[in-house]
Simulated assay, not measured.
Amino acid sequence: MKTCLTHARIVTPTQTLDDASLLIEDGRIAAINPVSFPTGATEIDLEGRLLLPGLIDLHCDALEKEIEPRPGVHFPIDFAVQNADRRNAIAGITTVFHALSFANAELGVRNNAFAADIARAVHELRDDLLVDNRVHCRYEVTDTDAPALLTELLEHDAIHLLSFMDHTPGQGQFKSDQAYRDYLARSYKKSEAEIDALLEEKHAAGAGAEQRMRELAETAHKHGIQVASHDDDTPEKARFVHDLGATLSEFPINLETARTARELGMATIFGAPNILRGKSQSGSMRALDAVLEGVADCLCADYAPAAMLPALFQLVEQTGISLAHSIRLASLHPARAAGLNDRGAIAPDLRADLIAVRLHEGLPRVEGVWVAGEPRLLSGGLATA
């Protein structure tokens, strides 16, 4: 289990090393530019390709669309999980946290029973998949039924990240009742009467949300699971979730809230699709502005795994930051934010999660993927190297 990757442009956390080599032994990075290669090691000539740490995606709900590509149309969960796994490998993502919504009011796969089935399936299948598949459970805080189910999943180690979200209109992602109504009508074909009932139920359930959040956060911490908050829209909200023990702020709505979250020691997460599109799909702050203002710690795939890698290269062009800096946003920073101290960078003794990338007409193309030192995807001539 010794592999030598040679003639690579290696991107470390601080710089890019030209015509460099890397030695992998027993699933870990043994050395960068070793003096000599061990006898019997397999050599793969990267022929000038970039060698990057595998990307780490803390929030991606694309698996939901793999399972339910159209409203009411469902594929078998195991089939969808395997498809999502391969999409992530091709995108250069070697650790993915599938974001599953526990929110009965949102229907579709975003309901408690269905989301729990998906979480269990990922947990059962993950040893046989290409990349490291993990579960990020998103709890809609106005749902009164989900806490018992989430507690059960935590007790069975089927959750790797827990986040709190509140889609009550008038704050967060939905700035008004009409925005939420449009979402339900568009996504789930709900009638006005059905939406009225859902909104009434959501507002009524909000009264006990804080206590439910506190109890779930305590349970998560007891099991060593990180807690995040979704769509924080005011500094006060950031302080509240920080007091609950949240260490990540996902998609803060505005610059002031993002700054407050970071001042409190929370890692901020923004969407890579936001970078590629140049704007937020919900009208919140641009991820590009967050990077320029120095308040973005991590980028995630959000709903499009394929957007991760191109967004990192686009950031270099748009902001002038180094490639090493840009890559940290999707590797080292999310690894540390999630408590994964064994990966996230090309450095000795870390887990050898690596991707070989070639630029093709300005777009990055993943041609090699190694997970814990094992080749999981080799193409573009590397397969026969």
Rank of each mutant, 00 (worst) to 15 (best):
A204T: 12
A116M: 02
E106D: 07
I32P: 13
G172D: 00
P310M: 00
L150M: 09
K2E: 14
A337W: 02
E124W: 08
F102C: 10
V11R: 00
A103T: 05
T14A: 05
A103S: 14
R277I: 12
I253N: 05
S229W: 05
V291W: 01
A148Q: 11
Q15E: 15
N133W: 01
R358F: 04
G54M: 10
Y188S: 14
G278E: 01
T16F: 05
D157R: 15
R328V: 06
E361F: 08
C60E: 12
R277E: 13
C300W: 02
N33D: 15
H203Q: 15
V357T: 06
A324E: 11
F270G: 00
A115G: 09
E106Q: 09
K202L: 14
K189H: 14
L332S: 03
L216P: 15
T12F: 08
A103P: 05
S326E: 03
D182I: 13
E210Y: 11
T94D: 14
P38V: 12
L198Y: 09
F174D: 00
L377N: 02
T95Q: 01
T144W: 08
A311W: 00
T168I: 11
A185W: 11
D297S: 12
A121T: 11
N111W: 08
L244V: 04
H59G: 12
A204K: 04
Y180Q: 11
S331A: 06
V81Y: 01
D127R: 10
D166R: 03
L153K: 03
T6M: 12
T219P: 08
A204W: 03
D45W: 03
N341F: 10
A272Q: 09
A217P: 15
L130I: 07
L63Y: 14
L100M: 07
P334E: 00
E152K: 10
A121M: 13
A290Y: 03
L50H: 03
L125P: 02
L17G: 02
L350M: 09
I10S: 06
R28I: 12
I32E: 07
R134V: 13
R70V: 01
L22I: 12
R70Q: 09
N111D: 11
I10Y: 04
S379W: 00
D18V: 13
G278Q: 04
D61N: 13
H221D: 07
A207Q: 15
L125H: 02
I24Q: 01
A261E: 08
Y139H: 02
L184V: 01
V141R: 05
A91H: 06
L125T: 05
T95D: 05
C300T: 07
E361G: 07
R186C: 13
L363G: 06
E66C: 10
K202R: 15
D19A: 14
L198V: 15
H74Y: 15
I93C: 04
P71R: 07
F97T: 09
R239A: 02
L153I: 08
L354A: 03
G373E: 11
E155H: 12
G344I: 08
L46D: 04
N274L: 09
L299Q: 06
G380C: 08
R328L: 02
I159E: 03
H136N: 14
Q173R: 03
K65V: 14
C4L: 11
H74P: 11
R212M: 04
D145S: 00
L382V: 10
P53K: 13
R186K: 15
S36K: 07
E215A: 09
F75M: 06
Y139N: 04
K65T: 12
